Amino acid sequence: KLETFPLDVLVNTAAEDLPRGVDPSRKENHLSDEDFKAVFGMTRSAFANLPLWKQQNLKKEKGLF
């Protein structure tokens, strides 16, 4: 399991300012399950079932792209 970080560490943070080991294209993977659901309004599995373009739009909207 990946290390999780608080939302404010990941949202609207440039790649070079992210904690070590965080993939800038997969910031959402480093949210706790609770934060993930609070941000996206759905579970990880529901998010994973969305088309890629919709996932990317949601990530942009939430500052996690």
Rank of each mutant, 00 (worst) to 15 (best):
P6A: 10
D8S: 13
E28D: 07
R44P: 07
V11S: 06
V22N: 04
F47V: 01
N12E: 10
L10M: 13
F5Q: 14
V22S: 03
F65T: 09
F65L: 15
S45Y: 09
D33S: 07
P24Y: 07
G41Y: 00
L31S: 04
L10D: 07
L52C: 11
L10G: 07
P51F: 00
A38I: 10
F5C: 11
A15R: 11
G41D: 13
Q56E: 15
L10K: 13
N57I: 14
N49I: 09
D33F: 01
S45H: 12
R44I: 02
K54A: 11
E28F: 02
A48H: 13
E28P: 01
N12R: 07
S25D: 15
T43L: 01
V22P: 02
L7P: 12
P6S: 15
Q55L: 01
N49M: 08
D8N: 11
V9E: 15
N57P: 00
A48W: 08
K60A: 14
L58I: 13
G63K: 07
M42I: 12
D23C: 05
K60W: 07
F5M: 15
S45F: 09
L2A: 15
R44E: 05
R20M: 12
L18Y: 04
R26K: 15
N12Q: 11
L2S: 15
N49S: 14
A15K: 11
S45I: 10
D35A: 03
T4W: 02
E34M: 12
E34Q: 12
L50H: 00
E16T: 09
G41T: 03
A15I: 12
T13H: 05
L50F: 05
G63C: 05
S45Q: 13
E61L: 09
M42F: 04
Q56C: 10
E34S: 14
A15T: 14
L18S: 05
N57E: 15
D23G: 02
F47G: 01
P24I: 06
K27Q: 10
G41K: 14
P51K: 03
L18A: 08
E28I: 09
A46G: 10
E16N: 11
L10F: 02
T43Y: 03
F47P: 03
P6L: 01
A38W: 08
D33I: 04
P51Y: 00
